[in-house]
Structure formats: C-alpha cells, structure tokens
Nucleic acid binder design. Structure first.
Lengths: 279, 279
DNA sequence: CCGCGTCGATACCTCACGGGTATCGGTGAT
DNA sequence: ATCACCGATACCCGTGAGGTATCGACGCGG
C-alpha cells in the first residue's frame, strides 16, 4: 500500500464524497475514484458502500481509516524528524497546553538548561487535545499531558505530579464562601454552565456551555461571569484578582505526565525526561 | 514520502550495499540508486555517506531508519487489519512467548470464552522478543508481555500480575539445598553460565552462555547441566522432576502485562482486556 | 605501476500508470 | 417528466519508474 493511496482513501473517508475529496486533494474526481477502487481490489476489501447519493464507510473502511491515519502520522513523523536531524544538530520541541503547567514548565526548562549537555528546547504551546497529534506526527518531540483529560495512547510516559482540582469562580460569587464544592454543584450554577472542550477530532460536543479552546479564553469567560470551570490546583498562581477558587474534592485527580513517542529516545530527550522526573 | 521509497531506503540501510539491496528488492541497482538519491533530494538530507567501497548511514539516515521502520510497520498493520476486518467478521490473535505464562494463559482463554459475546481467539506462540513486532505490524491484536524483559514502548498495557524470580537448577545440584540465592551466585556457578537471549534485532550479545530462543530449549539445557537460569516463579509448574528451583530475592520482579496497539481498541479486544484484568 | 575487480553513478530507452477531459447511468427532488 | 447530483467509465497524454549498457573511482595483487 502506497501512502498516496492511503491519503486518497483518508480524504474520501473523511469527506464521504468523492468530488469534495478530489477538490481537497487538488485533483479531478475520476482518477480518485479509480485509485480508491484499485486500492479496494488490491486489499480484497470493500471500503465504501456507494449508495448513489453519497458514500458510507464499511466496517473494513472504518478499520483502515483508524489505522491509516496512524500510519500516515508515522510516515509524516519519519519525514519531519529526518529533516530536523539533517539540519539542526539537535534541539528538542516540547509541546504543552497553553496556560497549563505554568509552574512546572519554567522549572523544568530552567533545570534542564542547567544540565551538562543540554540542547536548546523550543516550546510549542497549543490548544487542548492537540498535543498527541503533534507528538505522533513528529512536529514535537516531547510533551506535558494531563491525565485523564489527554490520552497517552501510543506514547511512552513518566508520571510527574498528581493534584486535585478546584472550581474557578468570579471573585465575589456567593459560592466562593464555601469550603468545598462538588462537581454537581459547580455544573449546576445558574447562568454559568461548564465550558465545552473540543474532542480529539476538533469538534465540540453538544450542550449549553460556551466553546473554549484554551485556558486564557476560559478564564476570561469566567471573569465575565459567563461560565464556571473546574481546573487543576496548579492553575491558581496564574489567576488574576478577579477570580476565586474553591476545592472540589470529588473531581478526578489530575496527573501531569511527560510523554514522548516510543522508539525516539535520543540522548537529549533522555536527559530532559530524567530532569523532569527528578523535579 | 511514499512507502516504496521508504522500503528502498530501509533495504539499503540494512544491507549497506546498493547491489545486494537491489537484489533483495527484486530490481536492478541503478533505479535503486536513483530512487534513494531522489529521496535525499526531496528530504533535503544526506542519508548515506558513499565512501566508495561501501556506504554508511549518516545521522539523519539513522533517524530515518528507526522512524521509517516504525512507519512501515504501521502501514503493514493498517493493511493486515483491514484485510482481516473484511474477511472474518472478527476474531482476535493473541501472542505469547512459548513456554511463558503457562498458568495465566489457559485461565484467561477459558474465562474469556465464557464471556457473553466472546469471539474466537487464535493463540500465536513466538520466540522471545518477537511479540512487539507482531503487535506493531498487525499480525497480532493483543499479547502477554513480561516487564522488564519485553519493552512495551508504543503499546497500551494493563498490569496483570507481578512475581519474583527463582533460579532453575538441575535436581541434585549442591546449590538446591540453599534457601535463597543471589543473582551473582547464580551467574557464577562454574560450568553453568547464564544463557544469552536474542536482542530486539534478533542477534545475540557476546558472552560465554549458550544462545537460547525459547523456554523449552533453555530448560532442556539446564537439565543437561549446561546452564543455569533465573525465571519467574510461575514457570515452576511446567518443570519436570529433573529440575529444582531456589528463590532469588534480588532478581528484578517480573510484571506480566496484557498489551495491545493503541487506537485499535475494538469491542472484542476490550472484552478480552477486561477479562484479563479481572482474573 | 599496471591491469582487474568492485561498486555506485550516469545515460538513455521503454512502457505502465497516474492524472486529465468528456461523458454516461442511476437516483432523488421538484 | 425533467433536472441536478454524483460516482463510474472511456479514452488520451505525459511523467516517471524500471530496465540495460557503460562510466568513473577506488583498492588490491602481481
């Protein structure tokens, strides 16, 4: 199977429409139809049900979509990492969620920079749920993830810290007088619904809350009294005076891990991981 | 990057010889040379140092070899799993080291078969260190690994059991009278060196001990008085009367885990994993 | 010092196949 | 009944993958 065929298939599987997929791929529709049919013949598997009026994925097609995306990511990662290895003599790209781990991250970077043999570390801040993709397709070498929010599937990890969560409320809100709150109480505050985070595919679940992409955005909304949220304790130092926190003991505890793609444990990466676990 | 180019590169990188690589690929040498050069141009990276009289990998080439193998495995896995999904309506392939987990494995299979909605499970017994490859390229869906011997890099795992290790000696050997032994003592028994296991690339490290590939082979050698070994406790029930065991408290404890490729958690696989963790 | 063998690169040819345009056939909506 | 939509088919063309023949550089034995 060639990556070209795989890319064609994934495009069609995502669009569920040969014409649009062809447009996205910058080609005409007939050769795309032909290529997909040829792939089906070679695999001996029907990938799409063509119900004249759109297409749908078969079971085998769903498998190939899942596995094929992972394979394409791996190919992209190989290409990117090779390019990087050829140009700069090293350097690491560390990815973290914008606004998270605001204490841990500078500590880690300082501690690592002080190590003998440390290489330059580029920090890549991204939105929620994008880290895994960046790690898997080679745009980043190592990342800070927060379990159970992020999934570490397919990545190697080391535990760093575990912490409880707190509710974030506008200063002066009646509930800020409470010693603790429950998840149910926070979720039920009138007029301040819990925000909705994007899923792994970048789309938002349905619901009443505002759609948020990163922490800055969320904190602003809370300051405006338009939302309430539950976040890890470590976000406290970065809150302005307009926000208050109340512990939420029944919220799941959050584990911060350092994660990296398997089989890519370079010397520099190993040093960074060692530094992180010693903090 | 096309998989074809990647396969060509990997062949040359493994042979370090364009002629032999071309032969292995079933093609002539000139087009292979040209394809590799073109890949280098497209990547903007020199992959080989052509020192007239053989070739050697550059740093970037080493990166691409490592990452490219993983990528090719992922592509193969996608292809294999799609074919399987298209033909049989399911079934799982479970891989285990021949001779290991001899108690756990039948228990797991029986318990799973009794579950509602269980699918047929094919058991694939393999040599030491081959499980990861089989899982990564899609020939197997799930496996039993033994940490820290096997590496679970790039696989999702659930812990099943942890156990200590025992020395395996021929019955009647003077040391069988001891209550415990240390690793050092077992390694130093005259005339009975510790065996050498193959590494991840299938080659054996240098040393005095015999080369072994699976447990049956090893136990036979011990019975002949040609080797001593340290193995997990759970191997005891499968030893014949000609072998004796002595605990080795300072040997690393062995954790048996059930492992599967990430992103491939089918319903059937989830059931098997759930059954395993409940044992 | 000179052939000779080895090995990757180059030159050149051929044809398969990837991609384009034009068009068809089937189906649901109006 | 007609039309719009969408994937499949027919057919053409140019690129490029792969083949053969040969070159150029280097190491080695006589």
């Amino acid at each position: 199977m060639e990556t070209r065929e795989l890319r064609y298939f994934v495009a069609v599987a995502e669009e569920l429409h040969f014409g649009r997929a062809a447009e996205r791929l910058g080609m005409a529709q007939p050769p795309l139809s032909r290529a997909v049919r040829q792939l089906e013949r070679r695999l001996g598997a029907t990938l799409f049900d063509r119900n004249s009026r759109g297409v749908t994925l078969t079971e085998a097609g769903a498998v190939l979509l899942r596995e094929g995306r992972a394979a394409l990511d791996a190919v992209d990662a190989a290409e990117r990492r090779t390019r990087r290895a050829a140009n700069g003599p090293a350097g690491l790209v560390l990815v973290a969620k914008a606004g998270a781990s605001s204490e841990l991250l500078p500590k880690l970077l300082d501690a690592y920079a002080a190590e003998p043999g440390a290489v330059p570390v580029d920090v890549l801040l991204c939105g929620v749920g994008q880290q895994e993709g960046l790690l898997r397709d080679g745009r980043a070498d190592v990342g800070l993830l927060h379990l159970p929010f992020d999934s570490a599937a397919g990545l190697d990890v080391e535990r760093l810290t575990t912490e409880g969560q707190v509710a974030i409320l506008p200063a002066g809100h009646p509930l800020t007088g409470r010693r603790t709150l429950t998840m149910a109480e926070v979720a039920a505050i009138p007029g301040m619904p819990m925000p909705r985070w994007p899923g792994r595919d970048g789309t938002y679940p349905d619901g009443p809350g505002p759609e948020v992409r990163d922490h800055a955005q969320l904190l602003q909304l809370i300051g405006l009294g338009r939302a309430a949220a539950v976040l890890p304790e470590s976000c406290r130092p970065m809150l302005g005076p307009d926000l208050a926190t109340v512990p939420v003991p029944d919220a799941p505890r959050v584990t911060t891990v350092i994660a990296w793609p398997p089989h890519s444990r370079s010397l520099a990466l190993a040093g960074l991981i060692r530094t992180a676990t010693r903090l």
